[in-house]
């Protein structure tokens, strides 16, 4: 009788324990448990309050607008002379309004102001296919940086704002990069490891 019950137990012992995550990788678990149904978290839109954004392409996601963040605009307020020269260079202006434009990106590669700005009105962006809205500046940047644009559309480049669920709102190119000096600046870290050299100083 004991032997028979042990025999009955055998398959249980053989096939048990294969269901825990310890026996499969998390990638297999994801494949097994994934669902195309979007998870809905009530009230998630609350965290997007105050952000201005507009739909991208067919509206799968949203891009933060840029025009409402421009502070030195329109450009022709100062750059009112041919060749983007400014007639007002004195006390009317903060002296270092945008000194970074003295060394705009791409100059070494042959880029000039007029590659992105309209020659007549610098406040108007132009790409190879015509005028580009400041809110859709990705069309302009993406002309050269097409790999970054692909990653940005998919989510591997750039930054999603506020939430991981609900409407996907992402930062525009110029939300993170200064269009005239797109490389991130060199600076001291915001904080430090408590035992670091900086902390002891």
């Amino acid at each position: 009788m004991i032997r028979r019950s042990l025999l009955l137990l055998l398959p249980v012992l053989l096939f048990s324990g294969c269901h825990g995550p310890s026996h499969h990788g998390v990638r297999e678990r994801i494949d097994h448990e994934q669902s195309p149904d979007q998870v809905e978290i009530s009230g998630v839109e609350y965290w997007l309050d105050g952000l201005r954004y507009e739909p991208y392409g067919e509206g799968d996601f949203f891009v933060r607008t840029r025009s409402d963040q421009l502070v030195q605009f329109p450009c022709a307020r100062c750059h009112d002379q041919p060749g983007f020269a400014a007639s007002r260079t004195d006390g009317d202006l903060p002296e270092s309004a945008h000194l970074q434009i003295l060394q705009p990106h791409g100059v070494a590669e042959g880029l000039a102001c007029a590659h992105c700005h309209d020659g007549e009105d610098p406040s108007q962006l132009v790409g190879q296919k015509g005028p580009v809205d400041f809110d859709r500046v990705y069309d302009l940047c993406g002309t050269c940086h097409f790999e970054q644009r692909r990653d940005w559309e998919a989510g591997a480049h750039g930054k999603r704002l506020a939430t991981w669920s609900g409407p996907r709102v992402i930062e525009n190119c110029t939300g993170c990069h200064d269009p005239h000096a797109p490389r991130f600046e060199t600076r001291l870290p915001t904080t430090m490891y408590p035992g670091s050299e900086g902390a002891r100083r």
Binding site: V26, I30, E33, Q34, S35, P36, Q38, V39, A154, G155, A156, H157, G158, K159, R160, W164, S165, R168, E171, C176, F184
Partner: peptide, 21 residues
Amino acid sequence: CPTGARIFGNLLDPDSEIRWV
């Protein structure tokens, strides 16, 4: 993160950014 180096999301959502990565 000011550089967008950090991507967070739902692994069970096949359309999430993290799944694309």
